[in-house]
Amino acid sequence: MQLQQLSELMQDAAKDAVRYAAEQHQITLDNSLASLVQVDTILSELHQHELAQQHSPEMIFTLCSIFGAYIGEVFIAHSGGQWQQNNVDSKAPFIYVQHHDKEFPFASTCYYKITQDNSVSLKNYVKQAMANAMQ
């Protein structure tokens, strides 16, 4: 996939996250750094639901992809960088934001928060990623 196509795909996925947040959680995401608090709220609710009744693997993949895209788009807008795809393992390719020599797999962090550790803060993760990107 060309970088332009990948970028457009991720922008569209980020828009899906905005729609999902509005329709399913009545939360408005405005592409600001402050909106990452609301993303944490949504992912915390998804974590609680996951504990009570597991989501399907497809649903988890989709939610992590769209919220990873949203977070990545916020990061790119404020710090720069570009979307990249790692195809080293053809059975498990992944998409991440690359900023200089640093890689930020935002969807993976969403997955970890939803399925493993609700204490993870995406807002804090992005704040740290932005600091690391500037080093």
Results as ranks from 00 to 15, higher is better:
residue 109 T to G: 00
residue 15 K to L: 13
residue 69 A to C: 10
residue 3 L to C: 01
residue 57 P to S: 10
residue 21 A to T: 03
residue 40 D to I: 07
residue 133 A to D: 02
residue 130 M to C: 02
residue 64 C to R: 03
residue 105 P to E: 08
residue 70 Y to Q: 03
residue 112 Y to N: 09
residue 96 Y to D: 03
residue 68 G to Y: 07
residue 58 E to K: 13
residue 52 A to H: 14
residue 25 H to I: 00
residue 118 N to R: 13
residue 84 Q to V: 11
residue 106 F to L: 04
residue 13 A to R: 15
residue 74 V to Q: 01
residue 43 L to K: 06
residue 67 F to R: 01
residue 25 H to Q: 07
residue 128 Q to M: 10
residue 108 S to V: 02
residue 12 D to H: 14
residue 45 E to I: 11
residue 111 Y to R: 12
residue 29 L to T: 04
residue 47 H to D: 02
residue 41 T to C: 05
residue 3 L to E: 15
residue 106 F to Y: 08
residue 133 A to Y: 03
residue 48 Q to V: 09
residue 23 E to L: 13
residue 6 L to Y: 08
residue 3 L to T: 12
residue 22 A to Y: 07
residue 42 I to F: 04
residue 45 E to M: 13
residue 49 H to C: 09
residue 5 Q to M: 10
residue 19 R to S: 12
residue 58 E to L: 12
residue 46 L to S: 01
residue 112 Y to Q: 14
residue 79 S to H: 10
residue 35 S to D: 11
residue 134 M to V: 05
residue 29 L to R: 05
residue 14 A to K: 06
residue 62 T to Y: 15
residue 9 L to N: 15
residue 40 D to K: 05
residue 110 C to L: 06
residue 27 I to S: 02
residue 109 T to S: 11
residue 68 G to F: 08
residue 17 A to H: 04
residue 24 Q to A: 14
